[in-house]
């Protein structure tokens, strides 16, 4: 039997990157034993609107949404294996790290952080791979 591949549409529609912003992207895709979550920027789950804040506040909003997305897909932050964090500036890495540490278990997942030019004025984008 071929390994499972399934697009998991978020039950909270405002967190569905594709339908909210009209992009050709699925928010969560299962492949084999893993869930792949698309790069998330800060969105208010109630309104579906982009939130523009500090690196710390955007990180917090993204991780609140990520937690909800993973749990709705039957996974959780405890089952995350790898996180990639993109920041608008690496000078902000400590501000991200402090908020980040309050969301993830101990021991935390593997992680890579880098600075990049992000679309749409985002200060933070976070993508992750989790066990399904």
């Amino acid at each position: 039997m071929a390994p499972r591949r399934e697009v998991i549409v978020p039950s909270v529609r405002t967190l569905d990157a594709g339908s909210s912003f009209g992009q050709a992207v699925s928010t969560v895709v299962r492949g084999g034993d893993f869930l792949f979550v698309c790069g998330l920027s800060a969105v208010d789950a109630r309104s579906g609107e982009r939130v523009r804040g500090t690196t710390a506040s955007e990180t917090r909003q993204i991780l609140i949404n990520l937690k909800q997305l993973l749990e709705a897909a039957g996974s959780s932050l405890d089952k995350v294996v790898k996180v990639n964090v993109l920041l608008h500036s690496m000078l902000e890495a400590p501000n991200m790290n402090e908020v980040y540490a309050s969301f993830f278990p101990d021991p935390p997942p593997a992680r890579t952080v880098c600075g990049a030019r992000l679309p749409d004025g985002a200060k933070v984008i976070i993508e992750c791979t989790a066990l399904a």
Binding site: N97, A101, P108, A110, R111, V113
Partner: peptide
């Protein structure tokens, strides 16, 4: 350096 990360994770 206080990075909240494990060196590596083995899964699947």
């Amino acid at each position: 350096y206080g990075h909240h990360q494990s060196p590596a994770i083995r899964a699947g």
